[in-house]
Design a protein around this nucleic acid. Structure first.
Lengths: 230, 230
DNA sequence: TATCGGAGGATACGGCGTATCAGGGCGTTC
DNA sequence: GAACGCCCTGATACGCCGTATCCTCCGATA
């Protein structure tokens, strides 16, 4: 269990006083630069020029630090615009943008309940912007949009990484991967799948995200309308 | 990059011959019992009564093993029923059921492109069942359903774990968590959020999942109809 | 100035993924 | 049937991780 509120240890007058915030910022810096697996308490401590065990005066556990990192990013996520549809659309879009800026977020998002101050503030902003909507509908609706966004950005980042991994190493992609799929399709075991891949439209990442989001919002719209009619 | 096809090392006549499959089954057993963080190559090797390094004759890396674990579970996921809506609904439902049976899957699903044989077979089954649908629409539609399911089950499992963690330790929940939220709401900083939590309907996990899925399928239905009209 | 408390850092422990290497059992070849 | 050589196998080891423990030293207090 995360302790969201933790009194800062009383400060002696030291330059560059350590703090939860500085620790979290350092961790985010490492994660942005080299991915989540580059985040270790030892490396964070080194960046802050401090012994590893110092950090335990500010955080209880590495998992807590990860929660704090996620919460820090939630500070960037706010809906904008007028009307419930635009609010939800912009909520989804800014979330996606935050994940693009912090790819490691794709590994963490949705993995734990988010109850930190910034996540709650995001929730408040969303609820405030949706105050016209039926109070019984708003929670499932927001949950649905959140769920879609979480899954969509995870898949998107997963694909991006795979492309990058093989792109950095064009050789590997050529020699290991493409032939595998071609061989697999050539076996004829997956005719319907092969047909869709061959004949279907290929949307890029933006279009795919927006198409799925549009489906969801259309469905929500039908529900909202139905309710407004009663 | 995962090597999905790997020739089994030629077998000497040994009882209980090692194999990728036995390794993956052992890993899944450990993960089912004690969670993903209980899966280590050393423990798997111990279960199989083998030295840790033996495993490297069958898998290249631990990440590859995790991919194989996920792919193995994909073997259980198949859509059923008639009509695109029922196909997609059952696809979502069986995926959710698989995650319930293997909670660790919530940590991995969507985290990497799934191109293993069972994932492809699932794709084939889905595409075959949707063969009436516009070939250009089917990929975005399936992607949207997958994204929703991934996000929804992650959130669901995350909540379940949090409840379990505090439930096992009723004390902690009482002394650490509930008061935090109450205090937080009592500050009045989140009035709209507090109002929704106070006044809104509270759906259980099943209802929440199905409500969100219904939104999405309704939106897809509108799209499919619109297209059929042209 | 003497005492005390607590913060800070060094050290250590157990576990991890995996590289390396020596040894030995087996199939192969003369 | 004997010698050879290869590869499978297990042992050992390395570097990293999260974090428990403990000791030291410093600053505040009496």
């Amino acid at each position: 269990m995360v302790v969201w509120e933790r009194p800062e240890p009383p400060s002696r007058p030291v330059l560059a006083q350590l703090s939860r915030e500085r620790i979290v910022r350092a961790a985010i810096g490492l994660a942005d630069a080299d991915g989540l697996e580059a985040v270790s308490l030892r490396k964070i401590a080194a960046v802050l020029d401090v012994g590893p065990m110092r950090l335990y005066g500010y955080i209880a556990t590495k998992d807590e630090l990860l929660d704090l990192m996620v919460d820090a990013v939630y500070a960037e996520i706010r809906p904008a615009g007028d009307g419930w549809r635009e609010v939800l659309r912009s909520l989804a879009e800014t979330t996606r943008k935050a994940v693009h800026q912090h790819e490691w977020l794709a590994d963490l998002i949705g993995g734990r309940p988010q109850l930190g101050p910034h996540a709650l503030a995001r929730g408040e902003a969303v609820m405030a912007a949706l105050d016209g909507v039926d109070v019984d509908a708003v929670m499932p609706v927001v949950a649905a949009v959140d769920a879609y966004v979480i899954g969509a950005v995870r898949r998107e980042i997963a694909e991006r990484r795979a492309e990058r991994a093989t792109g950095m190493d064009e050789q590997q992609w050529q020699v290991a991967f493409e032939p595998y799929l071609q061989r697999t399709f050539a076996t004829g075991r997956f005719p319907a799948l092969a047909a869709v891949v061959r004949d279907g439209a290929h949307l890029d990442a933006d279009q795919t995200f927006q198409a799925g989001l549009a489906f969801l919002l259309d469905g929500i719209e039908a529900h909202v309308r139905r309710h407004a009619d009663n």
